[in-house]
Every structure is written in C-alpha cells, then in structure tokens.
Design a protein around this nucleic acid. Structure first.
Lengths: 220, 220
DNA sequence: ACAAAAGTGTTAGAATTACACCCATGG
DNA sequence: CCATGGGTGTAATTCTAACACTTTTGT
C-alpha cells in the first residue's frame, strides 16, 4: 500500500480590501511554472496538524495564525507521479501581517480569489472548497476577526466581511449587530490614517464564549 | 515515508427513537475484544470515497445511503502498530433499512450514542466528532430526511430530529416550519400501525433546491 | 470648500416561540 | 371507555432589513 500523504494549505489574507490566496510558482514538473498552493509531505513522527503548521511556517515564516483542517483529497489520478492523498488545511493571516518569503519561493504571490490563474493538480478544487468553508465559518465563528490585527476599526471589520462574502453589507445593521453581541471592546486608541479618525476596537474572547454556549450566531 | 491510509466510518441510524452507531467487536489485537467503528485500508487505485463506500458495503450490505467525508485523523500514536492516517466518514442509514451482517461481523451492534462502550484507537473521538457534525448538518441540510425511508409520517420526522439533537421539539412549530418550507409532499398513503392513522409524506428535492439557492435554513 | 470616510436610530415586516384542546383508533 | 398518538392556530416577542443625514478631517 504505497500511498504518500501530504498536506496542502490554502493561506488566506485580506489585501486591498480583497480576499487573497497565497500561491507559489512551481519550479519543477509536473505542472512546472504553474501556480500551486503550498504543501509538502507529512513526516514519519508528525501529526497532520504539525505537518500543516510546519509547511505554513516554511512558506510564510508565520506560525501564530489560525490554521484548521479543511478536507482530504485522494483521487488516484490527482498527482501524475503516483498515489498521493493530501490533507488540505486553510490558514487565516491577519491583514498587514508581515510575511517572510519562503525558501524556494521567489515566486510567491497573493492572488485575488476572483481572479485565480490555472492551478496545478486539483488545487483549484481545494481553493474553491476553502473559500466556501470560509464563507460559512464567517457566520458562526470568529473567523472574521482572525483576518485582522489585534486592534481594528469597525469599517475594517466590515470590509473583511464584505471581501469574504463578496457582497456589500449595511453599515448601521452591521454595527448594531456587533453592539448587540457585545464581543467588541472599545480601546482608547484611534486610527488616524484615514480622513476622519476612527475608534479602534479589539475582540473580547470572554464574551464570545458565553454567546457560543447559548448558540448565538453572527448572522451577517 | 511509510504511512498507511485507512478509512473509518461512523454509521448512524435511528432505532427505538434513538440515535445509534454501528460498532464491531474486534477479533484481533490491538484492542482485541474492544468495540470499534468499521474501517479498512484504502486500495491502490481507489478514491477515498470509493474506499469508504466499499467498506460500508462490506460491513452492512448497503451502498445506497448518504455517505460523506468527516475529518482526517493522523496522530502518530493513534495506532500502536505503526503510522496510520485515517480518513473518517459518516453514513446515514434510514430507519428500518435492513442490514446484512458483515463478513467478520457476528459481533456487530447498534449502540446508543448516549451509552457508548470504550472504543478502540481514537474511535471515540471520531464518533463524537461525527455526532457534532450531524447535529450541525441537521440545521442546514436535509440530513434528517436521509435517516428515514422514502415515505414517513411527520411524527417520525420529528422524532429523528429529537433523537439527533437530544431534545424535545414543539409539535406545532415543527409542522408549521415544514409547511412554510414546502419541502414535503403529502402522499395518498397512511400509516396504520399506530393508534390513529397518520398521513405519509415524502421529501420534495426540487423545492429544496430552490430554497438552498436563497440560503434558507431548517432552523429547529 | 469639498471629498472621503466615521458615526448614528427608527420603522415595517418576518421569523420564532410559547401554548391547549379535540379526534380517531386499538385495546 | 380510555389511553395513545395525530392533528390543528393565535398572539407576543424577537430578529432582520431597509433606509439618510451629520461630523470630522485632509487636500
């Protein structure tokens, strides 16, 4: 039973108010010069999560971000070199988080999810699946907050939701819902880069835990 | 990289108005005589889905039921014999669906999810994860209908929801919601086994597709 | 002075929840 | 005749969705 096991990672971030995926240009066949998502083999004494985290760190230098298993892909023909089952993960990198370019990766790029090039292997399917999962998770988890630094403005948060959902939201309803949920703490700081200063907020994990117990959602 | 790949399947059904899981008593070490969920190796030229379907059929004789990938488990120590990554699946067998006992399985049993014995390997974790997934899927998919034969009474359907969610639902609200959703078709047939005859219904896939497009849920 | 983004409430409609009685049948 | 499960509607509450103007600052 010579099946090889890899992990592949769909790494998301927000940039220019758009949802982006990290892609790498392949240097070797198969699919030489095509874009692909980062990935690699699971080592002998490594859990799947650990393998994904290692690959993430190798490729981006970050290991302090949200990382979750997505789905496993194991079509016998998905890799022309032989039988490879991949456990796909997705990661959420906060906007503005600085990324160190990976080892072999002079050719990494943040690519708009609405404008993906042809991808190697079945990576297009994996990315599409990850986007779908992310959109769903937005509604009942705090995934949205994980795409922002610790402090953020309400407009920035709304922009994250809009980028991921791919639609505009009503500003007043969005803020009303957040106030009602009570998961944000106002900080004393202001963002002064825009036209008008905006209050900075941070996420209150304690309050969120209480809401979860009651089954309350983030229904945007 | 000698990692072995298996599939394991959490097979659910409803019996005696309770949510049940199919367990098999292991005949060989490790965990000899412990209960476990069915599973086996992924073959060389077989997709993951095909492997799961094959195992399901070997164990139960059925291959016409709902079957979906759940999650992959790959802790290096999860199998004492060596490195085994398992792709877990879950299946929904309609109540009353007749099951042929599996090959090696004189010792299969439908076990109440609220009263599970100690399970082999990390199977308890897999089953718990499957239950959680099933509960969630109930809210936004037609998983509930997949646990019933083609025709069913409204009380039977409600009983499925109650068994999976582990709580009582209000009869009138339940029926009102179904009527509003319009996903049921009344059949001319009646169930005459209970005290009073009950109308039999069947699921209307066409109407459900329309609802899905609009993002409407089954919020019980 | 004006362009750009921040901030702020109300109202109508829809969905959710709580709740109690009569009916048909088999034992 | 009575125990069991089938069947039905309304009212209060909560949630959702639509909607526009004023404020502050940088240019």
């Amino acid at each position: 039973m010579s099946i090889q096991v890899t992990v592949d990672i769909v790494i998301f971030t927000i940039r220019d108010s758009r949802l982006k995926v990290l892609l790498i240009k392949r240097g070797i066949p198969p699919f030489k010069d095509a874009m692909a998502i980062p990935g690699g083999f699971v080592l002998e004494n490594e859990s799947l999560d650990a393998a994904a985290l290692r690959e993430l760190k190798e490729e981006t230098g970050v290991d302090d971000v949200f990382l979750e298993q997505l789905y496993s892909f194991g079509d016998p023909k998905r890799d022309p070199r032989g039988r490879v089952v991949t456990i796909a993960y997705y990661a959420l990198v906060p906007a503005g988080h600085s990324i160190r370019a990976g080892s072999d990766a002079a050719a990494t790029a943040w690519c708009d999810v609405d404008d993906l090039p042809k991808l190697a292997f079945d990576h297009r399917r994996i990315v599409d699946y990850a986007i779908e999962r992310l959109r769903n998770k937005l509604e009942y988890t705090t995934a949205g907050f994980k795409m922002l630094p610790e402090q953020f403005t309400l407009s920035e948060l709304q922009s994250v939701y809009e980028a991921i959902l791919g639609k505009k939201l009503d500003k007043r309803n969005f803020r009303k819902k957040l106030k009602l949920l009570g998961v944000l703490k106002a900080t004393p700081a202001w963002r002064k880069t825009g036209r008008k200063p905006a209050r900075l907020y941070c996420f209150s994990a304690k309050k969120f835990e209480k809401l979860k117990d009651k089954g309350i959602l983030f229904p945007f």
